[in-house]
Every structure is written in structure tokens, then in C-alpha cells.
Design a protein around this nucleic acid. Structure first.
Lengths: 109, 109
DNA sequence: CGTGTAAGGAATTCTGACACG
DNA sequence: CGTGTAAGGAATTCTGACACG
């Protein structure tokens, strides 16, 4: 993945209405998952939420887990354990990887 | 580039206000370039324009050319000649590539 | 707990037009 | 030709709250 492609995935440019279309979730649900600290959109200058494709994917994952009866609290716990894109990115920014690339993103436990 | 990454680049999910922030162009300019048939956003159900990252890049290219005094008419001509991402994509959809990958995207003629 | 809804306001987007040049 | 702007309407988004459970 080049830097440009990485940007496409993580740049926050999608408004909540389109995220709703993309995920099938209601805006209410999307805002609630933010309140529960499962996703972290940025804000535009006037305060509208902006999401990335990575956020959209996280939301679809959340939706699947909610269907299975998982609680938001539990989903948050699980996200802490599994290094996902967000955490991977964070460590990349810290410049402390380059060596370990074996981190996996298991779909089902 | 995987299919997913391709989607990130070409999926139309960005509203005109954010495109304006990203490119530094006014909404008026962006709509005008569409009128001049240089970009082709899709529309949401209620009619708001949606752009892709590829569109944003095209717009930045257009902005550069406009600065150099190139007319919209001439930019359109040039886009016809040079196979850019959009055309490449089109031929990929047709399934008729896989063999030729030497198409270049010259920055300056 | 997770989500729907009505409420009111603020910001967004749209179109067609006039303006300058 | 390319772009700014005022105009009016329609759609979007935001927050805090009540509701059910």
C-alpha cells in the first residue's frame, strides 16, 4: 500500500449521511457508537462529523457484532486487544515498527 | 493495488464542501468544471454531488493548469489524449488489459 | 442498553441569474 | 471565459431530551 492509498483509507472526508448509506446504520446508531467510544470521527470547522473508509469498515464490523448480541462495552474491549488499522497506524507514526509485520486481523475468534 | 484500495480511490463519497477544503477551489469553480465536463460527480438520492479521491486529484490537476492559463476547453482535449485513471479503470472493467501496463501519466508535455 | 423520534437552530447544497470582462 | 455573489428553497447535521425497556 503506498502512502497515497493509505491516505485514501484513513483520511476523514465522509459525512454521516453517506456513512449511513454505506453501512446501513442509522445516524443515531453511528453517533451512539461514537458516544460509546468505538469510533472517532473528526469534526469540520463548523462541527459536522467526518469519517474515513477505515471508520466505515469498523462500523460494519460493529454492526455484525451487534447482530450477534455483543454489547458495545464488549466490542470496545475486543478492539483494545486486537491491533486493528488504527493502532497499527499509531505505531507506524511512532516509527517503531518496520521490523514486525506479522500482526494479524483475525475475523472470528 | 487491491480491489479494496481501488474502491477507496474511486468510490464517490465526498461532498462538495469537503472537496472544496481539500482542493482549495471554491464550490463555484468545482461546479463550473463539471459544467465544462472536466469532472463527473454522481448524485445522492436527493441530488447532492458526490466525488471520489480520484476526482479530487483531477481537480488539483485542473487547478494547476488553470493557473498556467490553460482554458477548460484545452484541458478537456488533453484529458482525452492522455489515458488517466478514469480511462484506465474503464479498460480494466472491460477486462482487456493485464498485458499492457506501460501507460504513463506524463505531468508536463 | 441501544435506538427511535420530535424539536429548533445552524450550516450545506442546489439552481438560475446578474455581473464583470 | 471563468468566477463571484445574492436569493430562496430544500435537505443535512447537531445537540439534548423523552421514550421504551
Amino acid at each position: 500500500m503506498t502512502d497515497e492509498e493509505k491516505t485514501y483509507k484513513t483520511k476523514k472526508v465522509i459525512t454521516i449521511g453517506i456513512v449511513s448509506e454505506l453501512t446501513g446504520l442509522s445516524e443515531r446508531q453511528i453517533r451512539y457508537y461514537e458516544e460509546r467510544r468505538l469510533i472517532f470521527p473528526t469534526r469540520s470547522e463548523r462541527g459536522t462529523r467526518k469519517y474515513s473508509f477505515a471508520d466505515v469498515e469498523t462500523l460494519m464490523d460493529i454492526a455484525n457484532q451487534m447482530e450477534d448480541g455483543v454489547r458495545t462495552f464488549e466490542i470496545r474491549q475486543e478492539m483494545k486487544k486486537k491491533p486493528d488499522e488504527q493502532k497499527l497506524r499509531r505505531s507506524m507514526i511512532k516509527g517503531q515498527l518496520n521490523a514486525r509485520f506479522g500482526i494479524q486481523n483475525e475475523q472470528r475468534k
